[in-house]
Amino acid sequence: MKYEFIKSHEYLFPIEKMCKVLKVGCSSYFKWKSRPISKQLLLKEKIKQEIISIYFASKQRYGSPRITFELNVLGYKISRITVAKYMKEFGLRSKLSKKFKVTTNSKHSYLVVENVLDRNFEAKEPSKVWVSDITYIHTKEGFLYLTTIIDLYDRKIIGWSLNNGMSTKETSIAAWKMAVRNRKFDKGLIFHSDRGVQYANRKFAKMVESYGVIRSMSRKGNCWDNAVAESFFKSLKTELIYGNKLIKKEKMELVYVFKRKWTFS
């Protein structure tokens, strides 16, 4: 560690002085420095450079989990803890949004159903389990509200809606109509959401149940019960929204970005 420190600070301080302060021999340091670099050290430095490259390519929005995933795709076997340690060395931190707006209003008198899904986020076949949620997108002119429906089988967005308002017609119903156009399903499909009024009200409930769907809702105040939808929104905002000062309240522009980045089928 002392040798590494001296080497990294050669351009700041005289080598002889650093050796004296750190109580190491100059000859020993130069002998260490002249040794060939090991393959392990070369790989370590290469990974660090890849981390820096991925971080800035993502416009400083990726944290250690996403960068670890990208490294694994590139063929590097490395843990998230190690990536986090290297990021800390370089002072790299993902950009996070500080703005928050409530989109779930669970204070209503509509019927709330049980959590049938019970955090079982694996589906062996298409159209067996769909999950849905609503989030906001902060723009220069105000808020837009994005509703998505995800098939747990392949984690694809099969239905979505982007609107200025939060009415049932503009959110859950609009996304549902797109989903049923994009994917066929049989009776018994589990549709999971939070307890928000857009999912609990009679209009949406009656429409969904007419298809023979089994409804499921997260427990009150428990975001982990709908973790897949929550995770998608975090990824979407991290990659496309946070730090983007050019976002304007123009639906067509945001719809284009959403469709181009998150293809559904």
Rank of each mutant, 00 (worst) to 15 (best):
K206M: 08
A229M: 07
R215G: 03
V112W: 00
L111E: 14
C223V: 11
K156Q: 14
V197G: 00
K140G: 15
V213Q: 08
I190V: 15
I137R: 05
S127N: 13
I173T: 10
L152T: 09
A227S: 15
E114V: 02
S218Q: 11
T104N: 14
K206S: 14
V197R: 03
S109Y: 09
K98V: 02
R155L: 12
V228M: 10
N164T: 09
P126S: 04
E114I: 00
S161P: 08
L96Y: 06
D154Y: 08
I157P: 04
G165C: 05
N201S: 14
A229F: 00
S132F: 09
E114W: 00
K184R: 12
V102L: 07
G142N: 10
I190E: 06
S106P: 00
V129L: 00
E170A: 15
V102T: 13
E122H: 10
V112A: 02
F121Y: 04
V213G: 10
Y211T: 05
F191M: 08
E125R: 09
K95A: 09
C223A: 15
S109E: 15
F121C: 07
A123M: 02
F191Y: 15
G212K: 12
L117A: 10
A123C: 02
K184A: 12
A175I: 00
I214F: 02
